[in-house]
Design a protein around this nucleic acid. Structure first.
Length: 296
DNA sequence: TGAATTGTTATCGT
DNA sequence: AACGATAACAATTC
């Protein structure tokens, strides 16, 4: 389940392999996930040079030399694989090489051939991933919220986002239109780091709590990137952050901070992990009506 | 067999 | 009316 740190790790792995390369072929065996269409994307990107590879939210972004952009979203189970193509046109994988190294990776859905004889595979078991080509990057990403590791993401910026609505912290932080890049793992970790309960209404945080949440979000993302992300299953290997998680996947185990048992509850249809002692449940007493909000 | 997972969209309620 | 919560959905693995 790639979130911001996992996508960032993939971008860092592939950047030196892809930048300056020219795309010589593209094909998709699952056209539904390719926009505007596999044929159109092929026509538009073949012959283009990749100028930059970077990340926006959970999107892998290819800047192409004609000013257009290719966006890849891994969603639930998307992943990349890397291979060489020999003179006979046989692709040989070497990320995890198969028994013969030749067969397409499991759940291969699309591939790009590059001018230096390499092939980039896009694999996706659940087929939720998306490959989008756009000539208007700004419009294509207009719905995305704040980038949490950007300089512009200050405690004041977070405060404005929290106070502008009254939503429970967990669904709010999961909402890509508000803060972009967080998923289930890192929202739970950030809330625990800040000592805040997932059900806390966003407009009830005091300044100190907002500062703590801001620091906790950035801290957990930075530490996760440094650990190459979190690896729970075959979808995303090589990360080490799972060894350092405070609450996610630790229901029933003792809190590393206070020793209380980590609990799992359900918030907005998502499994949610909390320490009942470090993250106290908000009382429902102070229900303010619309128009009663205080801004600073 | 059902639970789990992401993010979008449609729908219901306040 | 606008916003927030909720449900459905795409598809597969364990």
């Amino acid at each position: 389940m790639p979130e911001l740190p996992e996508v960032e790790t993939i971008v860092r792995t592939y950047r030196h392999r892809l930048v300056e390369r020219r795309i010589v072929h593209f094909a998709s065996t699952w056209p539904r996930n390719t926009r505007p269409s596999a044929a159109l994307v092929r026509r538009r990107i073949v012959g283009r040079r990749i100028e930059r590879l970077w990340r926006r939210a959970k999107y892998i972004v290819f800047d192409l030399d004609d000013g257009s952009h290719l966006l890849v979203h891994l969603r639930m189970s998307g992943r990349m694989e890397w291979a060489t193509v020999d003179a006979a046109g046989t692709a040989r994988r070497f990320d995890p090489p198969g028994p013969k190294g030749q067969e397409p990776p499991r759940h291969a859905r699309a591939w790009w051939d590059l001018d230096d004889g390499h092939r980039l595979w896009f694999c996706d078991a659940r087929k939720f991933g998306r490959i989008v080509h756009t000539r208007d990057f700004v419009a294509a990403t207009a719905g995305l919220g704040a980038e949490p590791l950007d300089d512009a993401f200050t405690p004041e910026a977070l405060q404005a986002l929290l106070l502008a609505r009254r939503r429970r912290l967990k669904p709010l932080l999961l909402d890509q239109a508000v803060v972009a890049g967080l998923g289930n793992i890192y929202v739970d970790e950030a809330l625990h780091g800040a000592g805040l309960h997932p059900l806390m209404p966003s407009d009830r945080l005091r300044d100190g709590e907002i500062d703590r949440l801001h620091a906790a979000i950035r801290d957990v993302l930075r530490r996760a990137i440094a650990a190459n992300g979190t690896s729970f299953d075959w979808i995303y290997p090589d990360g080490r952050m799972q060894e350092h998680l405070a609450v996610y996947g630790r229901a029933g185990e003792p809190c590393r901070r206070c020793g209380a048992r980590i609990e799992m509850l359900r918030v907005g249809q998502r499994g949610t992990h909390v320490c009942p002692r470090c993250q106290r449940v908000p009382s429902r007493t102070r229900t303010r009506r619309r128009g009663d909000r205080t801004y600073t």
